[in-house]
Structures are given as C-alpha cells and as structure tokens.
Design a protein around this nucleic acid. Structure first.
Lengths: 147, 147
DNA sequence: CGGCTTTCTTGAACGAGTCAAGTTTTCCGG
DNA sequence: CCGGAAAACTTGACTCGTTCAAGAAAGCCG
C-alpha cells in the first residue's frame, strides 16, 4: 500500500486529501489494531499540529468510507486497522488485550449463516477469539505448575 | 430458573446471598441483554435503596463467577444475560442496537478452531452478527423503493 | 449471638468520546 | 492562476458510562 494509493483511495471515496488524513492512514498501516491515543501520538510525529478531534473525525470518516475498519473488543477502547477486504477475524488476549489477526478455518464466509436470525437482515459476522497470548500464557503456566 | 435456584447458585459460587444480588438476577432474567442503567431501574422497583455502585459490583461479581454473561457489541455499553451454558451468539441491529440470541449453524463449538492462532491459547469464540432488526429493515426498505 | 468479612452506600473522580463555534484548507470553475 | 463554497481542522468545553475510595451495614461461621 503506497502513499500515493492512499491519496487515490481518499479521492475514490469522495474525501478530500489532507495531511492529517494521510498521516492517519500511514499510522494505521504502521500499527494495526492501535487505539486512538496511540494513533494520535504516531500522527503527531509527522504532523505535530494535528488535533485530538481531527484524529477522531478522520477515523470516523475513514471508517464510514470503509477505508479503515474499527474493531472494539469488549472492555477495550476502539482500535483500527486498514480495510483489507479479506475475511479475517481477531484473537484478543484476556490478560494484556493484545489483538492479532486470524483467518477463520471454516472458509471465506464463516458462520455468516446463522440458523434462526429472528428476521434480522444480517450483513456481517464478526468472530472474536478470546484467550491468552503466548507471553501471558507463559507467565501464567509456571506459576500454576510450581506453587 | 426459580428464585430459590438463584440463592443456590450464589452459594455454590461462594457468594453471599443478598437482596441486591437476588434483585439483579431477577432483573437480568426478566430483561435479557439489558444495560446497567436499565437493570438498575428494574432493581429499584423491588429494592428502591439499591445504589448505582451496588449494581456495578453485583454484575461484576456475577460475571466473574460465570452466573451472568457480559456482552458488549462495539459502540454499545455493557449488556448482561443469564449464563445459560449453551453456545449461543448474538445478532445486533446496526440501527437501533437491539440484541437477539442466535444459535450458530455450524454446530456446538462453531469456529472455535481458527487456522493460525499465532500461539494464542484460545478458550472462547464469540460470534456477533451485524445487520438490521425487522423493524429497522422495514423502516428503511420503503424509503429506498419510493424516492 | 459475636465477630470477622464481604458487601453496600455515598460521593468524588476518571477518561474515551462527542458537541459546538469559529478558522483554515481543499479544490472546482472561471 | 485566482476566488469562493464546502469540507475539514483547531480549540475548548462537556457528557456519560464506569471506576475509585472510605466508611457503614449485612451475611454467615462457629
């Protein structure tokens, strides 16, 4: 994903090309699953004068235009990643909150067909796996084995 | 689920049986997927003196003991339902936020086996279906058909 | 029934996210 | 290349779900 492509993506979505928006896109590319505060800090390395609010606005606009995807595991603040089009899901560490991408084993449209949907018109199935990341699992196992 | 069973469940979990706790359990049974504010109001019908904080504490204790399950779709406040043990998931209306239960079509442990988990130790797969509830879908369809 | 904990009440505080007003920037048409 | 309308940004205040802290009350074991 080149910088010039970001510009093209913005125009295709009917959005104006601005320095804050390019900086946010670069920050999201550099740090997938980062929260707003982290992205703000990253943006300010390149563009020190970008405001708090601008990052919220930009992330909102990018999310509405499907250039960026917002995820928010329970108990976490909003996190963002570049919209990649493939159907991937996320695994979240219960201990430290780290998020990683996972492909679903079932196929391209996993679980999108629920049995009884109560008349809901479903357009997306979001799968969140919960568990422990390698680091937290390692920290925990020895403690249980040697009391 | 009888009231006397709530008492038993609390004791089995090593929790003391209190009026606030029983009232919260009844409220959650009566209004599945309700948020904290709704549950607080429901509790106060029976127990007017129960505090704000008590409901948060109780819901936290019940969640930790697995008597109650906390769900939190992106963009929503925390919602609660009685822990029923079966493997069901949720469908959320993008428009009004309504939540309904759905059984997953794939089986008892749907999607629990992700392909590459990056070394995470996974203990749960949570599926959230997103779409429009019957009411919101109906409100929207005519508007698109008759411009 | 007494005493040790757990739980609850009260009241303040925190923080992610939003709202609002005014200024700056983008970009289209001339 | 320039002017002006619309979109985007800055600044600063504010909302609201949730948490923190200290002291009072209630549950439960012996």
């Amino acid at each position: 994903m080149e910088d010039s492509e970001f510009e093209h993506l913005l125009r295709s979505a009917g959005l104006r090309v601005t320095r804050p928006r390019l900086a946010v896109l670069r920050a999201v590319r550099r740090q997938p699953h980062a929260d707003t505060a982290t992205l703000l800090a990253a943006v300010r390395v390149e563009e020190p004068s970008v405001s708090h609010q601008a990052v919220y606005d930009v992330l909102g606009a990018l999310t509405d235009s499907d250039l960026v995807r917002r995820i928010q595991p329970a108990g976490s603040v909003a996190r963002y990643e570049l919209r990649v089009g493939d159907n991937h899901h996320h695994v979240v560490c219960r201990s430290c909150g780290t998020v990683a991408d996972v492909d679903c084993a079932v196929g391209v449209r996993p679980c999108l067909d629920a049995s009884d949907t109560h008349g809901f018109v479903i357009d997306e199935a979001e799968v969140t796996y919960w568990g422990l990341c390698p680091t937290c699992a390692a920290d925990r196992a020895p403690a249980a084995a040697a009391p």
